[in-house]
Each structure stands twice: as structure tokens, then as C-alpha cells.
Write a protein that binds this DNA or RNA. Sequence first.
DNA 1: TTGAGTATTATGTATGCACATAATATGTCA
DNA 2: TGACATATTATGTGCATACATAATACTCAA
Lengths: 233, 233
Amino acid sequence: MTEPARLSWKLVRDAIHARILDSTYGPGDKLPKDQCLAEELGCARTTVQRAMRDLSDSGIVERRRKGGTHVRTDPVTRATLDIPITRKEVEQKGAVYGYQLVNLTTTQAPLVIAGKFELSAPTTMLHIEALHLADQRPYIFEDRWVSIDTVPEIASVDLKVESANEWLVRNRPYSRCDLRFYAIKASEHHAKLLDIAPNEALFVMERTTWIGKDPITTVKAVTTPGYQLLTEI
Amino acid sequence: MTEPARLSWKLVRDAIHARILDSTYGPGDKLPKDQCLAEELGCARTTVQRAMRDLSDSGIVERRRKGGTHVRTDPVTRATLDIPITRKEVEQKGAVYGYQLVNLTTTQAPLVIAGKFELSAPTTMLHIEALHLADQRPYIFEDRWVSIDTVPEIASVDLKVESANEWLVRNRPYSRCDLRFYAIKASEHHAKLLDIAPNEALFVMERTTWIGKDPITTVKAVTTPGYQLLTEI
DNA sequence: TTGAGTATTATGTATGCACATAATATGTCA
DNA sequence: TGACATATTATGTGCATACATAATACTCAA
């Protein structure tokens, strides 16, 4: 068995992770300092640092200057979610994507909506209700508010043709995004639009975005029964 | 205004991100190569590389060897979720945590459960039903299956006192974790246990873990009405 | 004993350099 | 023209070194 000339940081990461998995280092334990591990594993401290950053990002260890590296006592399940544009998601499933504008008004944003943006003063917003279809069947109902002040160009977009979802994501990058997931009982309105029985349990994804401090949009995406959100594997 | 002697990689990242936000580089555009940006911004290529890795991790740009760096055409909303131990979550809210074992049996895992682990042959598993309480009120109902083969020690744990959630997370690190979120209508069983009306819409989090190729556990955490899962800000 | 100030230390960052790797571009030959 | 081998190139990685930073540990006076 020959040592690889260079030990990649992934190998180092896995070596350390393995020791945690086999309880060489248990929850709460302090790990040797980078320098020691580097010497032990025969690599530079930089490489251990790289490996440790990855373990730290994954929530497996905690690092503190001067304090050292510890295995997390209360492990959290940390996962990365990717939420694509709805059209992409539908096409990914091999279905034909469709889009349909349901309602479009310009009004003062109600307090609930202003609250989502952490705004004190209510502002004028575009309120959009639209349906995303998969193979002609309702797939997701989106209830969206767009800030006219932050995104004046939205007024000149033909939302009967192009979904706000798509236009915004392509034209309005955001610097902050809050997500919120929960379940609701389908209202009469939802039931009618999504062509389902009322009182059905629906999975909802809410997303609010800002550019700097300015609100861009907040969407409530109401999915159809059976919808599941999965983590990337 | 004096230039900082050293430009941290975060400043470099933000500088590049700013150019994407203000459309200097639009969706699909190719960014200058690391070396150029390094010279332009007055730092080492390593620093640009560090900044770029972060932008790449955030799903803002895509990098390919030889191909260069491009702004993503189809931005995805990428978020990191932290799901803590239920007890921690309850305590975080300032409530008193409680735990109650509802049912405990050892049986052959049904096909649905074996399927979650991608197992072909069904195995013997511990089936646990338990309630997590917040201030004496039902908070989350957990329906769990634990592999006896992978975790034989679970047999000697007093699950009337300690929740499997807690014991496993502290004693059985995993190497793979799948998550799944959706909504269900509360069954009679759920309604009775959670002390709610039947047909209420409930948010469900499913989690399946493995160590290497071996199944550890799969949990269906049924939350009470009003529960919301948020991303870290 | 306590608290403020100081020294120590493990991790974090920046840099220059060399080489690895994968993807693209190019060139050659049939 | 097309297929295959080869050169080129931008990103990826490893390393040694120096310095920065935040936390802890320590010191010493009140």
C-alpha cells in the first residue's frame, strides 16, 4: 500500500469524519489542533483547514478561535434545498408546462404583506394570482405581491404571457431570501382553482426577497395534493 | 479613503456579486478569469478562487475547468435548513419540553418502510410512536422505524423515558440523510393523539438516515396545526 | 475574591508558487 | 468531411509562510 503523493482535502475530511463516526471522537470531544492532525496525516495545515471548514459547514464540528475544534454535542440535520423556477421543475418531471394568469391588481399592500417585508409603512404593490400547470392540470397556485417602488419595470411586463416568477428570477436578482413552509386546508377559492376537493391538505412554500433593504416580492406557492419537497441527494 | 491593506475574500465576493446584481454581468454572461479579476481587484488569485467558490456554493455562478465562470441562467433558490432535536426546538421557543411514548413494537418492516431505505429484502425493525410536547400540549407526533440490525443497542434503551430522536442523534451519527416535506389531512389517529380536529391540514417532515449503506432510522414527524419551518436568516 | 488588563494560542486569512485536472480547441490523417 | 489524438487553458488543489483575530488563560492590583 503506497501513500498517495498528495492527500486531497476530501480524503482528510473523510478521515476525520470517519473518526467521528466510529466514536474515536465522540459528541462534545475536542479534536487535536489542525497542526497536529496535519502532521499526523502528512499534509499541510491549509489542507486540514480546508477539510475542517467543510465539516464545520456541514454542522458536524464547531470551530472557535483559540477554543479549538469540537464535535457538535447537539447535531442538527442540515440540508440544502434547491427550489428551481416552477417551469423548470415541471419540465424536469417530463410534463408540459403551462401558465395562466388568474388575477392582477394594483393596491396598497395589506399589513400582513407589509409585515413579511418587515416594513412599517404600507406601500403600493402589484398583486398577482396565477396558476402553473403541468400537462394541462393545475400544479401550483401562486399568490404574489411585487413592490412597484423597487420593481417599476414589472408594470410593462405582459403577465398574461410570462409568469412573474420567471421574469423576476431572470431580471431581479435578490440579496436576501426568506423561506417558510407549512400546510393549509384548501379554501373554496383554492379548491376551485386547483380543481380539488375543499379542505384538502396543501403544502405551501412562501418566499420573500429583498434587494439590499428594499422589498422585491413575496410569494405564497400553494401546491396540489401529493406534492413533496425533497432535499438534494 | 485608504485602501485596506488586505482585501478579504468576502469583500472580493461581494464586489463580484455586486456586479451581478447591478447587471454588469447578466445571466449567462461569462466572467473574466480569476487571474484578471485578481489583478483588477488587487489581490491574489487564491483569494478570488475563495470568493468564487462561495458564489458557486450559493448557486449564483457556475464554474467549469477550462470553460470559465458564468452567471447562472436559471437561478435556483438555494437555502440551508437546520432541523434541531425536537427538545431543543421546544426549549428554544421558551416552552417546557415533554415526551411521551405511545406505542412500541418489533415487527417486520412493511414494504413502504423498506422502500424508503431502498432495501429489497424486508428486515426486522423497531416501530416507535411517540409524542413530543410543548408546555404539556402535543407538539409533534413521531412515527419512527429503527433498524435492529444496524442499531442493536436500541433494544436496551428505555424509550419510555428517553426519546429515540434524542438517543439516536447522540449515539448514532449518520453518513446520509434524506428529507421530504409535505402536507397530510389529519387521520382519526392523529386527531386523537394531537388533540385536534380530524381533517386538519398538517405539515409533515420525513427523515431517513443511513450509516454507509446500512439503514439506521426513518421518521415521519407530524406537526400540529400552525407549525412552520423557516430557513436560517 | 474580584475585576481589569495582558499574554497566549488555535483558528482564519492572504499570498506566491507549482502542479493537477478536465474541458475545450486544434491539428492530423483517413 | 469526420474521427481521433494532441495541445491549450481556466479552474482546482497542495504547500510554506506570514500575519490577523478572537477567545481563552493568566496576572496583578484593589
